[in-house]
Design a protein around this nucleic acid. Structure first.
Lengths: 150, 150
DNA sequence: AAAGATTGATGCATCAATCTTC
DNA sequence: GAAGATTGATGCATCAATCTTT
């Protein structure tokens, strides 16, 4: 454990912090915009629908879905209300013990299937194509260190 | 210019994308929470007030401030309305030609001064202390390549 | 007209409080 | 009571429409 510096941030420190901030912001923003404008799904919609297909074969309990997205129940619930209005998803079909099942609709399935190629293409275009081979290892290691729980 | 791959994202591609996403999200979230909980300012408030002090010596035109934050006028305007209610900032004092000056209040000055050390400490603790020397180069280079306009 | 700024509407994120079913 | 889920309130982000001053 090393001792932290004190006092105001030096220029090099600020530069690193700004680099990290804009990396994340720009990446999310660009991919998000591509998906939104080409398919009508938001990044959040995309996350919900793709998990419904991948994890549940179309049906899932809300808590599992929320966990896998790193969301709180209430955020998911609000989001599902909006998605249900758009008929991408259906609540309540097939109640099982103690939980209400969540089901993807046909419209939702069509939407996610049409969106996957856009998602892949956008990530390759904006992100992956800019990574050099040696960046990859470093990036994974960095993410591991920075996102591990303190 | 290299040709992009086609088809669904491979595992290694998804891993990189997820690494990048969580890097940005977690970093912003942690530093944001520290500032918010210890000083009562949001990250956005911090950005506004620190720029008012640094760039304008306390007074600035809104458009300049918005530009330097990468915000749209309307976002800034809404945000200032809320900050004005909290008396961190004052609009309209010292109208000059064609523009309304924005001024930091005494309360705002006190707040930003108290927050800077928290900001610096949080960034060092959550981010900088986890970076190895070779990460720094990567991060700067990556930010440069990824955030350059396509 | 055009630059500077504001407003209103809508959707999203978070928190705390609540409802429901076992 | 406790797990699963919903609701209401508040603040924030974005868009398009509007107002103001020269």
């Amino acid at each position: 454990v090393k001792t932290l510096a004190e006092g105001p941030l030096a220029d090099w420190e600020l530069q690193l912090w700004n680099a990290l901030k804009s990396l994340g912001e720009k990446s999310l923003e660009r991919v998000g915009r591509d998906i939104q404008s080409e398919t009508g799904l938001s990044a959040a919609d995309f996350g919900v629908l793709s998990r419904l297909e991948d994890l549940g074969g179309g049906t899932l309990r809300q808590q599992e879905l929320a966990d896998s997205m790193g969301w709180q129940r209430s955020r998911l619930s609000h989001h599902l209300t909006r998605m249900e209005e758009r008929e991408l998803v259906e609540r309540g079909e097939g109640k099982t013990a103690r939980s209400t099942a969540l089901t993807i609709t046909t419209k939702g399935r069509d939407a996610i299937r049409a969106s996957r190629p856009v998602h892949a293409k956008s990530i390759r275009r904006h992100i992956l194509s800019h990574l050099k081979a040696e960046d990859r290892k470093l990036l994974l290691a960095l993410a591991y260190r920075l996102t591990a729980d303190d």
